[in-house]
Simulated assay, not measured.
Amino acid sequence: MVLEQAAPLLCAGVTVYSPLSHFVLNKSGVRGGILGLGGVGHMGVKIAKAMGHHVTVISSSNKKKVEAMEHLGADEYLVSSDATRMQEAADSLDYILDTVPAFHPLEPYLSLLGFGGKLILIGASNAPLQFVSPMLLRGRRSIIGSFIGSMKEAEEMLEFCKEKGLSSMIEVIKMDYINTAFQRLENNDVKYRFVVDVAGSELQHQ
C-alpha cells in the first residue's frame, strides 16, 4: 500500500469499517445506505461494496449520482428531497451510515430502515439532531454512534483494503498549496481527501 493512503484510510477507512464490524454487518447480502458522499462517505461505499452489500447512496441532490454509480459502484442513488423515490425505498435498508457533519432531520432516513435497522451516526455535529420517537418504536429501529475505531479494527481494515484492492480517492498537495486547499475545502471542492506531501515540499528552515 502506498504511503499517501495511510492517513485517509486510518481516518475515513476505519471510521466506516469499525461500526460495520462491531455491529456484525460485515457480511454479504446486507442492504446498506450511505448518507453523504464526501471523504468518509466514498470510503463507506467502497468498503460496503467490498463486503458484498447492496449499497444505496443518499444525497441532497443529483450532483454526485454519476460519481456514486459509475465510479464508486453504488447500486442505487436516492435524492432525499424526492418524496416519491424516498417513499418507494421505505423499510428497505438494514443500516445507514450517516456521515453528515451538520444539522439535518433524521426522520426521512429512519423511514428507510427495515425491522431492526440501525442509523449509525459517524458524522459529528454540534447541533442537536431531531426525530420523533414513533420512528424508532415502529420497526424496532435504533440510532447508534460510532467514532473512529480501535487499533485492532485499524489493522483489520488495512488488511481488508489490501486484500480487496481498496484505496481512498485523494489529491496529493505540497505545503505551499495549503491556503488554497483550505479555500477549496470551504467550497466543498475536493474529491475526497487532501494529503500533504511534507517530505516532497520545498521547506525553508530558519
Score class of each variant (00 low, 15 high):
residue 118 K to C: 07
residue 145 G to C: 05
residue 118 K to I: 04
residue 65 K to H: 10
residue 114 G to W: 13
residue 68 A to E: 06
residue 141 R to C: 08
residue 98 D to R: 01
residue 118 K to P: 05
residue 85 R to V: 11
residue 129 L to V: 05
residue 90 A to D: 03
residue 98 D to A: 14
residue 146 S to D: 02
residue 128 P to H: 12
residue 34 I to Y: 12
residue 54 H to R: 06
residue 88 E to N: 09
residue 151 M to S: 08
residue 89 A to H: 10
residue 144 I to Y: 02
residue 72 L to Q: 02
residue 107 E to F: 00
residue 29 G to M: 06
residue 54 H to S: 07
residue 112 L to K: 01
residue 28 S to C: 09
residue 148 I to G: 05
residue 113 L to D: 12
residue 40 V to H: 02
residue 29 G to V: 08
residue 147 F to M: 07
residue 150 S to H: 04
residue 74 A to G: 11
residue 65 K to V: 02
residue 39 G to A: 10
residue 104 H to Y: 06
residue 87 Q to P: 00
residue 61 S to N: 05
residue 133 S to Q: 06
residue 80 S to Q: 05
residue 148 I to A: 08
residue 136 L to Y: 07
residue 127 A to H: 11
residue 153 E to D: 11
residue 66 V to W: 00
residue 107 E to V: 00
residue 92 S to D: 13
residue 104 H to V: 11
residue 47 I to A: 01
residue 54 H to Q: 11
residue 63 K to N: 15
residue 102 A to L: 11
residue 98 D to I: 05
residue 143 I to L: 06
residue 116 G to D: 12
residue 32 G to S: 10
residue 91 D to N: 14
residue 59 S to K: 12
residue 118 K to A: 10
residue 123 G to D: 07
residue 99 T to E: 12
residue 102 A to V: 13
residue 51 M to N: 06
residue 75 D to M: 01
residue 128 P to E: 15
residue 63 K to R: 09
residue 37 L to G: 14
residue 99 T to F: 04
residue 101 P to H: 08
residue 144 I to H: 07
residue 117 G to T: 09
residue 125 S to A: 15
residue 45 V to H: 04
residue 124 A to H: 05
residue 89 A to I: 11
residue 123 G to Y: 03
residue 116 G to H: 07
residue 96 I to C: 12
residue 91 D to T: 12
residue 153 E to V: 01
residue 106 L to A: 03
residue 93 L to A: 13
residue 54 H to M: 00
residue 114 G to A: 10
residue 76 E to I: 00
residue 115 F to M: 09
residue 124 A to S: 07
residue 141 R to E: 12
residue 87 Q to W: 02
residue 83 A to K: 06
residue 111 S to Y: 01
residue 143 I to C: 02
residue 64 K to H: 14
residue 51 M to E: 01
residue 112 L to R: 01
residue 48 A to T: 12
residue 109 Y to S: 09
residue 31 R to Q: 14
residue 88 E to Y: 02
residue 153 E to Y: 00
residue 153 E to T: 05
residue 80 S to D: 08
residue 107 E to I: 01
residue 30 V to S: 04
residue 95 Y to I: 04
residue 98 D to C: 10
residue 122 I to C: 11
residue 126 N to Q: 10
residue 64 K to C: 06
residue 42 H to D: 07
residue 130 Q to Y: 05
residue 40 V to R: 04
residue 70 E to C: 00
residue 147 F to V: 10
residue 67 E to R: 09
residue 47 I to P: 07
residue 64 K to Y: 12
residue 80 S to I: 10
residue 85 R to Q: 13
residue 112 L to S: 04
residue 42 H to S: 15
residue 140 R to C: 07
residue 108 P to C: 05
residue 27 K to T: 13
residue 110 L to C: 03
residue 90 A to Y: 02
